[in-house]
Amino acid sequence: MKRYEKKSDDSSVTVLSFDTSTAAFTAAIVRDGILIDSIISFTERNHSVRILSEIKELLSRNGLQGTDLDAVAVGQGPGSYTGVRIAVTAAKTLAWAWSKPLIGVSSLEALAYGAWQGLQEANEDMAQDRDTWIIPLMDARRGQVYTSRFTTDHCGKWEAVDGDGIRLIVDWAKRIEEEATLESQVAAIWFVGETAPHQATIELAEQSGARLRIMACDMNAAAVGQLAELRFRRGERDDIHTFVPNYTQITEAEAKLLAASRGE
């Protein structure tokens, strides 16, 4: 086990964050909750090619070295299996080689958090005293999505209602609509992220009750860094050696073996 220097809560914290769980490669430097610099790129399908060059460039153009960082933050998934493995492997190895704490953040939570900040900036949500649900989506093919649910308000509330999972969008959207209709405290519902493939399904789920709103947006590592900093200030650390992506499901081969052992 490595030893980390203890940071008091009010000292400055600089975090390098990145995420490769979606089609975007994104990396950021966040200091005390503020985005210092970031990179977002869609040019390379294979994030493994450019990831370290981009990180190197990001650090050097901000005059930073690994030793200047307080933590390495990474989107832990879910998302593309290969994609998530790339960022997680880089984060584990960099944190280990630099002897820096590793902080994993749910890629879905980062997607939701980034979207919520965007909505606030655009002043899209007018209800001051009621809650907003943010439902991040990543396409998982065959009508499925990686998704979760957060509830938030304008006083800084940010809580998970449902954890990360793979769900059928048709059932999920219907359930959200039904629950929101019964819940008077909820003023707005936003499906955010990779919404395009599922727009029609979400619209169909809208009955007479709650209005389901949609905002397409990309993953942004700034949100990974901000969420990681909150964890860091709470004294939370991930164990570098045992840190793995959150795939949300076992492999197909394991599922088949399990089914066979149950005599299915």
Partner: peptide
């Protein structure tokens, strides 16, 4: 990919 990304990370670090 896992080995390549780890090696590149070490090379950078």
């Amino acid at each position: 990919l896992v080995g390549v990304v780890a090696a590149k990370s070490l090379s950078l670090a």
